[in-house]
């Protein structure tokens, strides 16, 4: 035997069911997907190209830098420089700095991806 409360609960649930929830709308999904912040792959490509260009310029300009660094290294680390060679050590440091910079920029780019919020568009007629 069901209680009147249960009957009303069932009737109320039925009313909500019959009140036709909005039909599945593929266009709604399309609209949402179109508004998602893009992956912006072109920016990643641009970043990689900029890193390569920077590396190329740096390699052209590296000789005087390497020479200066070699002198410094000879002064402050003759042992280390002697072990691996001053030029190799300087290039290694420069490469590490460039790599670190690229990683940081890439991480920021990937980290920011998908974190951009869209402005709320609330219809005026609420």
């Amino acid at each position: 035997m069901t209680r009147p409360e249960d009957d009303f609960d069932a009737a109320l649930s039925g009313l909500f069911d019959d009140a036709a929830p909005p039909a599945h709308d593929p266009e709604f999904t399309d609209r949402v997907m179109a508004r998602l912040p893009g992956a912006e792959r072109w920016r990643l490509g641009l970043l990689a190209a900029a890193a390569l260009a920077g590396g190329a310029v740096a390699s052209v300009q590296a000789a005087p830098l390497v020479e200066g660094m070699t002198i410094v290294l000879q002064d402050i680390g003759t042992v280390a420089a002697g072990a691996v060679g001053g030029q190799a050590l300087a290039m290694g440091i420069a490469s590490a700095v460039a790599l670190g910079l690229t990683l940081i920029l890439s991480w920021r780019e990937l980290g920011l991806r998908g974190r951009v919020s869209s402005p709320a568009a609330f219809a005026a007629g609420c």
Partner: peptide, 21 residues
């Protein structure tokens, strides 16, 4: 909640965009 279908769909879009972020 809104009793307004267009408004409800606008808010639903914002809901999913917030969910993404």
């Amino acid at each position: 909640l809104t009793r307004h279908s267009t408004l409800a769909d606008d808010l639903a879009q914002e809901t999913f965009l917030k969910a993404w972020t």
